[in-house]
Amino acid sequence: MRRLPIRTLATLTAIGALTLTGCGTQSAATGAAGTSDEGRTITARKVMRLTTVHQETGMTLLEGPTFGTDGGLYVVDVTAPAGKPKVLRVDVGRKTSRAVHTDSRGAYTSAQFSPYDGRLYLTDYAHGEIVSMDPDGGDFRTFFSGEVDGALMNPDDLAFDQDGNLYVSDSRGLSEGEAHGRVVRIDRTGEKTAVLADGLAATNGISFDLGYRGLWISELTENRISYLRLDADGKVTARHTAVRVDGGIAQTDSIAVDADGNLYQALHGRAAMIVYNQYGERLATVRLPARTEGLESATNVAITPGGRTAYVTVSGPAGGYLYTFDALADGVRQSNGG
C-alpha cells in the first residue's frame, strides 16, 4: 500500500481511531525530473478520478488494484471514513465506478483475489486483521485476527501462493522507526501462522517471483527490495538485499511482477514507479505527464491478465486517480493486486 508507504501514523491512529499512515506519509514530490540513469521514460495517461480528499481524515489514498474474473478492477481507499466507499469496483472501459463495501472500522491497504476460493481478501492495517468477501461485497468475514508469535500485525500487502496460502508483509515498527517488520505466512484455512522473516524495515510490498521460488519484498524505511528464497514448504531458506532504490524523499511502496519477471516498484512520496529486471537493472521509470499537480504517491499497479495495459493508483491533495500505461510484458497473477 499499500500506502502509508510512510503510512502516517497520525492517519492510522485515526481510522481505527481514524488512524492511518497511509501506505506512506504523504510527502510532496510530483513526478520530479528524471535523470540519465532512469532508463526509458514511460508517461502514464489519466483514466479517471475515483475519490476526493475526505474531510474526516484529511486525505484519500487509493491502493490494492486487482482484477476480478468479471473484468472489473477493484480498488481500496485506505483512509475512507465510515459511510464512504472503502472498496470500489471500476469499469475501466466505461470509466465508471461503484461502491462495493464500507464499514465503520477498517483501514484497508491492499486487495487480492484468492486462487483457492475466489473471494476478495483485504488487509486491515489498523486492526491487524485479514478480512474477505464475495466480489459483490456480500458475505463479509474476518479471515484472521490475533497475534502472530506474540505480536499483533500491521498487515500491509499480501500475496497468494498457488495453493491459496497467504504471505503478508507485516509493517510492525513503522510508527517507532524500528526494524520490527515481518513476513508472515497464513495457511488458507486461517488457522496456522508462521513468521518467515523478521527484523525488516517496515515491510511493505510483497510479490512472488514467476516460478513461486521466492518472494520480492520492499522495506519502506530502508528504500530497498529484498529477496527471500523459499523451499517446497514455503519456508525461507535464504535472504538478501536485491535492489537499493534511489528514491530521494520518496519511499518504496508496493511491488508487482510481470510475465518477464520484471519488478514494478511503486513510490510513496513521488507519483511514479521504477521498473527493474530480476537482476536489479533499471529498465524504466513510469511518470505522470509534466505539470501534473496535486498527486504525490503511486502506491500500486495491476496489469491486465494476459495483456499489457497497466493501471496504477495515484493519490494526493488533488484526489485519488487511476492512470494507465503500457507495461513491459503481460500481466500474470503476480501483477494483479497485493
Rank of each mutant, 00 (worst) to 15 (best):
A28S: 15
Y311R: 05
A28G: 15
G181A: 01
A159L: 11
L166F: 02
G83T: 10
T237E: 07
G16Q: 14
V183W: 00
G16I: 10
L12K: 15
R185L: 05
P305N: 13
G72A: 09
A107H: 08
G331D: 03
L158N: 09
R94P: 10
V286G: 11
G72Q: 05
R45C: 13
G319E: 05
D139A: 04
L174H: 08
S254K: 08
G181Y: 01
L267Q: 14
S297G: 10
Y227V: 12
Y276W: 15
V131M: 04
L120A: 04
S315D: 06
T8C: 15
I6N: 15
H54Q: 07
T96W: 08
R308T: 10
S254E: 10
R185V: 05
I225P: 13
R7S: 12
E129H: 02
L267D: 08
D124S: 03
G58Q: 03
R2S: 12
G83C: 04
V76H: 03
V195G: 09
I206G: 01
M48Y: 05
R7A: 11
A32W: 14
I274G: 07
D198P: 08
S145R: 15
G261S: 05
N277C: 12
H268T: 14
L196T: 07
G34Q: 15
G331Q: 05
G181M: 00
G319P: 10
A250K: 13
L295K: 10
T96N: 06
M133W: 02
